[in-house]
Design a protein around this nucleic acid. Structure first.
Lengths: 206, 206
DNA sequence: TCCAAACCGTACTGTTCAGTTTGATTCTGC
DNA sequence: GCAGAATCAAACTGAACAGTACGGTTTGGA
């Protein structure tokens, strides 16, 4: 049954992919199993062979999305220079731009909307979100600030507070602003504004 | 019909009050009209005399909550001294503490959850939220910073960016952290941490 | 070529729920 | 008290939908 298992995994991915589109577009309550089966190109019967219930399917979908986002964010950590103030500035601006672009995408916002809405019903997903995604970004920033502090580039006694200040100041464009702005594009800050915010932040810790 | 109208308004408020509890606890999809009628101490029939549909009822409930929050926030604007750096600092710390306390309440978080979840379906509520609540807080802070700038207490060229930095840095404890933390209390920052964040922020604009 | 497993489409079941209907009961002003 | 309005409780209707049953079709290995 080695092949059977491999084929099963492919089908499972196919179902997950279709379900992802429907869940992100319609939310949990709005997504019907008929629509999911159709979007996945699969009969409803097959869907219930692979997943015990609609709820379990959603947990798998959200978990997979979070895992992928988490892998993407891990990449952000890479080699970033913080040895001098100009280097730290460039690093922060670059990182902020990347994160903001990723996080302003309609997929990310839809995911956030679904997770926030259903976190009372599926608490572990909410916890996963807080610990991996938003927490993950903060971890990267905190790591950079820590290294910059050790290098004597900045003076900051409370790294956690400083991290909050920067990430919060930037992400406020997305959350709460973007998440309720359904019509029209999300007003993510342009690069110039990001630079001004980073500069202002740096003035606080130098 | 003056009395009839008055009595109608009382009943309407009674229904709205009961519906508020159910909507905040269960969300739109989870709230049944039977539960709302029971919570309001009203027959379902009467409910449909006062409101054409469940959706219209929710719009009224959310609109009323937002209007009340908005009135509360208007109070925050009051007379605040920004004539000197210590005065500005005290003002900001005080304001931040008040806002954070209000915004960490489970009612506020439940409201935010409902609005975020249903903003795709009822866009005007999302817009109202963005413009009045979060936008309102920013307006107050921006006003304070503007006055402080004119008084020569601080140096800030981009008031909007500075406002984002402070409010974002503080509200990040609530959104996204608090909103997905269903179990356990929200980890709102204590006063000491608020002071550290404000101090750090002030260093950026002095 | 054959067989068995996987899959498909469709129709069905049981339930939940918004909104309505009915018919009785309680207020309110006069 | 007494009309007339407002309200109540409970049953009903119709639609939506999660999950299942069924009978036919494809697929892939021996």
């Amino acid at each position: 049954m080695a092949q059977g298992s491999a084929r099963s995994e492919a089908k499972r991915a196919q179902i997950r992919h279709g379900a992802t589109r429907v869940f992100l577009a319609e939310g949990f309550a709005g997504a019907t199993t008929d629509a999911i089966a159709k979007a996945a190109g699969v009969s409803k019967q097959t869907l219930y062979v692979y997943y015990r219930s609609k709820e379990q399917l959603m947990v798998d979908v959200l978990g997979s999305l979070l895992a992928r986002l988490n892998r993407d964010h891990a990449v952000l950590e890479g080699e970033r220079s913080v040895d001098s103030l100009p280097a730290l500035r460039a690093t922060l601006v670059e990182l902020a731009s990347e994160v903001l672009e990723a996080v302003s995408g309609s997929d990310y916002l839809a995911l956030a909307r679904v997770i926030i809405a259903d976190s009372p019903r599926v608490p572990e997903i909410g916890r996963l979100w807080a610990q991996t995604i938003t927490g993950g970004i903060r971890l990267v920033v905190a790591g950079l600030l820590e290294r910059a502090r050790e290098a004597g580039v900045v003076v900051v006694d409370d790294v956690e507070a400083a991290t909050r200040l920067l990430t919060g100041g930037l992400l406020t464009y997305v959350l709460p602003d973007g998440i309720v702005a359904v019509d029209g594009p999300v007003a993510a800050p342009d690069r110039e504004r990001v630079e001004r915010i980073v500069d202002m932040f740096l003035r606080a810790i130098t």
